[in-house]
Design a binder for these strands. Structure first.
Lengths: 214, 214, 214, 214
DNA sequence: TATGAATGAGCATTCATTCAT
DNA sequence: AATGAATGAATGCTCATTCAT
């Protein structure tokens, strides 16, 4: 009787509530950080009771994780998409995925501590967080790989070092501007050139260093 | 009644208590972060009652701010000292002051958000915060100046840009390793080479770029 | 419209659901005690929604009461059956019904407070509780009667006293072992000899006392 | 400066508060059982904030334990005192300590589950609860010893069995009357004769059994 | 100057219960 | 007849802060 694509009114209502919670939590976490936000605040912003949240999310931490995973996967897809565009210059690809990464961080501010390694949320060993951890590693891998298309490191160590430096720069850039209250797109437009400039210089340096070594 | 330079026994005792509180709070904030430390813990470590703290500091946040200022000034002195050593190569000076900055951040973890702009602690518009802000700017100025001894930027814009990139790198480095639980010196010893490597590459890039522009 | 003896399909289904709830609740209450079990757990075990329970039982407490009545009646039948077996020695009959009582208590742990008078569940003044109370009295009557087959008390007071003492012993035995987590049958096998020993001594004492009085 | 016996006004106030909490908690636990009472209720009854309770007692469980230990120790003293009165007949001594035990149980109803083995409160392995457990064992030992002055068991097994049966009876008696709302002394006066009667019969039975065995 | 006593606001979470379908 | 959605009230507990001395 039940058909795909058809959802009962109840199901729809449930999903709507879920969406409200997700949106409210996302915004609040982004604005004020995970720990500073209470479940009751989220509920209020979502227009439901705080107990309703527990209907859909086991606890506060799970809520954050569930919140982060889908956009994180989307980000990964976006990055992989950019890397597949072989017609583009390697440097442009690197800047594309760097831009994606920056945009994600600015959009999901509350995720930055998780993504950038500051263990604001404990990372013990349970369900979705392993997933989260592995996504994090894959993202770093994308940037590293894309960077190396240009550097062509000869040793793994060399490659790792270049990635690390590039990543530091990205991270510094992000944390510097994260507190900024400007609208996302405007802020993004301001940051991208900065990232490109910094990237140019870093690449210049990395290549120069390679040249000097040989 | 009160005369300059002369301090009554009470005053001395009072200052001693204040110092104990400052030291205890400083260590605890650095070790575990602002929010994770309770007033009672600070009091215990300082060897006084938790109510005594309120005698000298309006609230927990004020305590943090007051706490940060002296070591921040000390850091500034250290930096200025390093910059004055004209016998040293400019690059070494830059790395000296970068090292001082890193060590400070690792020692006063709770200050990092304040220094690096991630406003974990609200920065509304009270007294010491302006002071704090200006110290922050002066520190940035030191690094910028020291960096420019090597780059010799031709425009202010160019100089600002170089500094920003260098600062991003520093900041990324710090936030990456800040969560690390290693002993301070050990961690510091591990980070400095990373900073120097990254610095070398960055400088290489910056100089190369200048060359290309001319 | 509704005719005796004839049950519509709906009625049958309804009774089936009711039975499932009863069984699930009975087992869970017995295993873990009234307060430790949640409505949702009962529903899950019964294979229905937790809201369905409210269709048949006003609230959790009513559920417990309704739950207890049938097995309590069954216990009474069992006891009466044992008492009717005139071919058995009176003492064996007494121990048979004592055993039945013990088994019931171990099976329906949550009923013990109700049966034994410790009002863990409030016994205000509602419907089924009067019924419950009268069953309790009848059970006590069975034991008393069976005991008196051997003592042959001469006054009602004497008879009551003997019963009370015997009952205290039974009750002490039960509450002592009720917390035990052993499987029912195993535990039961361990308790019965204890009960018989204690019973023997008690009977010896009661008979001796009668002898001394005459 | 500080002298024994002299207490500052603050100390007095603190002790007064502590006493209020103890009394309120004692009464409430006794009336309604440990789990049914909330910290807020205790606080209300004690005339203080619920947070104040945490000033003096680590948590709810600790409160119960602290509450129980002193009167429990007192009970033990009382029992030992009675056992030392060699001028009294052994049976009277047994009934004296049985009476003490009964009175204690009726006074500290909430302790009965703990004392009688129903693990209402978990008995893991921490501080005061080991103490609690060992007091429990010592109390049982007193009763057992006192009983054996009359039975003179020949084997340890025999002695244990007698004690167990006597204890069952005592326990049954107590749990039967515990829910009773009569004033303590009145209830106590009603129970003691019952206990003595039951005790007489039990002793008669135990002695008779010994005679038959030899 | 210093402190122990005391507290209100807040936290995440659970649960029996009701509502709308 | 049955259920998923939703909730208010409650729980144990913590913490920064204030009060009285």
């Amino acid at each position: 009787m039940e058909q795909e694509g058809k959802k009962s009114r109840q199901e729809l209502r449930s999903e709507e509530t879920k969406r409200c919670i997700r949106e409210a939590a996302g915004e609040l976490f982004a604005e004020r950080g995970f720990h500073a936000v209470t479940m009751r605040e989220i509920a209020k912003a979502a227009g439901c009771s705080h107990t309703t949240i527990y209907l859909y999310y086991k606890d506060k931490e799970t809520l954050l994780e569930q919140l982060a995973l889908p956009p994180l996967r989307e980000l990964e897809q976006e990055m992989r998409g950019a890397m597949a565009r072989t017609e583009r210059a390697p440097k442009d690809v690197l800047y594309d995925i760097s831009g994606s990464f920056i945009r994600f961080c600015l959009s999901y501010k509350s995720m930055v501590p998780v993504l950038l390694g500051t263990k604001a949320v404990r990372m013990d060993a349970k369900g979705p967080q392993n997933e989260l951890n592995s996504v994090r590693l894959r993202l770093f891998g994308c940037i590293s790989e894309s960077l190396d298309c240009m550097i062509k490191s000869q040793t793994e160590e060399e490659r790792l070092q270049s990635s690390r430096i590039y990543f530091f720069m990205l991270q510094g850039l992000i944390t510097t501007y994260m507190e900024n209250e400007e609208p996302l797109e405007q802020l993004f437009a301001r940051i991208v050139p900065l990232m490109e400039e910094a990237g140019d210089i870093l690449l210049l340096g990395l290549l120069q260093k390679r040249k000097l070594q040989n």
